[in-house]
Design a binder for these strands. Structure first.
Lengths: 221, 221
DNA sequence: GTCTATACGAGGATAGAC
DNA sequence: GTCTATCCTCGTATAGAC
């Protein structure tokens, strides 16, 4: 496999080719530990191996660094949800267990990626100080995910796989526990503590939720 | 009602008597907006109306200020859960709806208090940078609340009011959605946005959850 | 317990040579 | 695009008079 041009990189943060990428990588690492105001330009450039003044060839100021990081997060997170157009097909060809287990796996893969993990932490740390982070949280994370799930449940209800409850209620009941369990998961990983308990809770939640809302076709228990 | 001595104050942050209290009040406000490292001693003392050097008569350094704030939060949060000894009595004398609605109201009162709201935000902002905040989150908030609820559900299962599911699963299903909804609620309030939608979701969650796990005595639907 | 004065390193950012 | 040199403000913290 030969090395390709920038445009063809798989993950925008996995291959570091340019100084700008390197700055971003270091900034993400430092911000995710100490927060934006806890990290200085000096610290970033020292770690990158350039002088402070050189950084300003790539970013006009400190704020532009974190703004770029937020944009990066937005793009990465958007990839975790499959396009709505494909949904009906996907749902037709899988059981609801398969669908939610697959979705959970996808998401876990996303959040387990070291860079994404750090991006999430930055959002958590900055979401009160920085209004872009806050909007990202409220719109891109919460709202988009819930809207996506609403559509999922609408379809599943039409397909008679799920009890005819209000889709927005179902979406909330499924997703809100996930948000806080994921936050806890990320916190535990930060301290390199054992995550098996919270991972189990996530799986149990999916099971319990599906058991609660599923229309059981075979046994009609 | 006459003014009493410090020891008898209702809320440790409502009456500001001493310079130390004033410093804490200002620090809480500033930290909750800009984070610990985003706020300087100069800024705090300017707001309080004293010189920088005077602050060091009350706190040995900047870190001691936030440590004190964390301790304050711990105490305030502990008040939101009724003592376990009284639980059985309380549960005997109320329906499960009443119990959970009352618990929710109590908690909402706690989090709506402006000072507590700020304390929560500080925990959110600092919980990756500061290990005390992180422990507070994992132990005092998450673990304690879940342990408390486990006991509640054990009792309710014994009283045949709730289906005989595993208490820890019930506690998780009830509480984890609450954590993230409360985070969203706090975020919306920060921007003074409308909170009626998320408040509704919280209420709907309690309803849905109770409907799911309740043993219906009268109709056995 | 508050003040003035002071120390001194760290902060973001720019000008201009190479 | 990187460097050296420089700017000036802000940062925490202390000494010592009142």
């Amino acid at each position: 496999m030969s090395r390709h041009r920038k445009k063809e990189r798989k993950h925008p943060l996995t291959n570091i080719n340019t100084t700008k990428d390197k700055i971003l990588e270091v900034a993400i690492d430092l911000f995710s530990h100490k927060g934006y105001s806890g990290v200085s330009i000096r610290e970033i450039t020292r770690e990158v191996g350039i002088k402070e003044s050189s950084l300003y060839n790539h970013f006009k100021n400190k704020d532009e660094i974190i703004t770029t990081i937020f944009e990066l997060f937005r793009n990465e997170f958007a990839k975790t949800l499959p396009p709505t157009e494909l949904l009906e097909d996907i749902l037709k060809n899988s059981t609801i267990q398969q669908f939610f287990e697959k979705g959970f796996e996808n998401f876990k893969e996303h959040i387990d990626h070291p860079k994404n993990e750090k991006l999430w932490r930055i959002i958590y740390i900055e979401h009160y100080r920085n209004s872009i982070a806050r909007e990202l949280f409220l719109n891109d994370i919460i709202k988009n995910t819930l809207s996506f799930l609403e559509i999922v449940f609408e379809i599943l209800i039409m397909q008679k796989k799920i009890k005819p409850l209000r889709p927005s209620l179902l979406a909330a009941e499924y997703q809100y526990p996930m948000f806080s369990m994921l936050a806890e998961y990320n916190m535990l990983r930060f301290d390199q503590k054992d995550t098996s308990e919270i991972e189990n809770k996530m799986k149990e939640h999916v099971e319990f939720f599906l058991d609660t809302v599923r229309v059981d076709e075979s046994t009609q228990k």
